[in-house]
Design a protein around this nucleic acid. Sequence first.
RNA 1: GAUCGCGUAGCUCAGUCGGUAGAGCAACCGCCUUUUAAGCGGUAGGUCCUGGGUUCGAGUCCCAGCGCGAUCACCA
Length: 594
Amino acid sequence: MMRWVRRGVRGRGSETVFAGDAARIRHPHRRRAVGFALVMSTTPSTAEPKKVPMSQSSLTDHERDPLIKARREKLQRWRSDLGLQPYGRRVDGLVSLTEARALFDQNAHDRFGAAVEAAKDTPDQPVEDQRPRALVAGRCVQHRVMGKLVFMVLRDHSGDLQVSVSKSDLDPTSFKIASKLDYGDIVVAGGPVGMTKKGEICIWANRFEVHCKSLVPPPEKFHGLQDAELRYRQRYVDMYANPGTIETFQLRSKLVSQVRRFMDGRGYLEVETPMMQPIAGGAAARPFITHHNALGMELYLRIAPELYLKRLLVGGMPRVYEINRNFRNEGVDRSHNPEFTMMEVYEAFGDYDTMRELTESIIHELAQTCAQISRERAANDVPPGPDAPLILPFGEINIDYTRPFRVVTYGELFERAMGFDMFDREKTRAKAKQEHLENADRLDHWLLVSELFDRYGEAEIDPSKPTFVKDFPAAISPLTRPHEENPELSYRWELFIAGMELANSYTELNDPEVQLQKFTEQLAGADEEVQTFRALDEDFLHALRVGMPPAGGLGVGIDRIIMLMTNSTTIRDVILFPLMKSRAAEAGEPQGEG
RNA sequence: GAUCGCGUAGCUCAGUCGGUAGAGCAACCGCCUUUUAAGCGGUAGGUCCUGGGUUCGAGUCCCAGCGCGAUCACCA
């Protein structure tokens, strides 16, 4: 409801200033409904990707590139001269590189060394070799040829491992392949797990096969792929060139699974509600629009699942959650991607305190997992004492996830920042004028409070201490149940960490008459432009009339939690394929009509 | 959408005051059976993002465009 009004308040741009670098990341994924749909026709994109016709594909470019040309010619030679099939086939019995490394047995290695030494005098005797064997696959990321010895480092999802190839251990063809291997090729190697003279654990290969020839030269092996644009556009290269990337996404997957187990363990039912909606309700963001041909209807990518999840409470599901994508037609910055993952939770007969306990428990548990992983990586797997703080780094700051999180009311924070009570209408308006807020003389008191809070109140929150800010003004929380003692306040909180809004929760409004009244007020306040893309979700109101139990509701920005847990200060580093503007001329080809 | 910054070899980066385009890695050829970003000798590789302009002369200065980044707007 507030958006178009607040735009007026903000006027000529925000002068909001935040203390720390991390604190500058703000503007949460707002989850909340205003109760009716914002349906905005998106204008056709001017950035529509121009398709490069197949006949003009970048093949000719590849033929021009001498580095790619050299690789293709090598591929042809391997096929014709060596009879090789360089694109591989199924291989059973593979272990990961980390598993193979763990197989190393010092005693077996020492005994084998001694046996080799002894065998120098008796060359006819077979040398006893008790070293464990391993069969591995990986992408070649380092390659050193020393005449009749080849050392290479393979990389897979688990880590790196050296493979050492001696000409005396292999047939001539396999040795030739090993010595002529290119960076980026995917190979299978098998043999005893041993060690080099320099103490490097490796596989001494007696089996060596190329299973995929890479035609594209890799990034610089020492610095990896630095260019942010290339990292996001060609994530597959980033993933193997920068090991931290795959680690981040492995951790993301692990943490999201942990959230699901947590929710399941507490008896919440995971559900999936429509992502294509005839009315995009549940928040006030602009939707993306699409079209269903057979039904001849417009559809919107959802901006929130809220109105459908509440229908499930009406239907009788007592505890539901959904972890999935929302789509908002808005800008891109360090904490916003147009499609992002959110968890929404609804619990019948709960309230916003139920949700606060839930949120704190989840985040605390995830932080514990990450702290544990850090200790393991630091080879310092000592469990902390019972009172030890739970601290994880994020950019320049260290965030303390020790329970309980801080709780402060909106009003306290406002007064601390502004020096007067937020109920004081005269001082609020005077301050708003002093700050040159647009329309400061005629806007509603609570809109001015909200604007001043955004500008100064949030900066009062210590970014290193997760903080619940509770009891927002009811006027800026239209879907929340009003406070029983003071109807100007509402049962709503937001959780702030590192200057970002991580979660938002309400004690839900389930009185259909009050809800309708608020909807109507909001529609009446909408200007002409806004009314063109807003619609009332009559079916949702009908559901409330059927009857929804009192409930607590919660929205958690999953991407932002992952940012905190993986120490990623930009959301693009925790989204596998962040949205990038299309680059039609990337291949350097002329843009044909087809 | 606005402002600022960036765009040089496949990658990572230098390039001074406007005066013939540079390095490392990767590639190609040669040597090497314990290397660790291996080493040594040799060779090749450029639409300096694109298009205009100023100038005797532009990677460098100016204008426009494209892409990326940062800040802001948008996001109740």
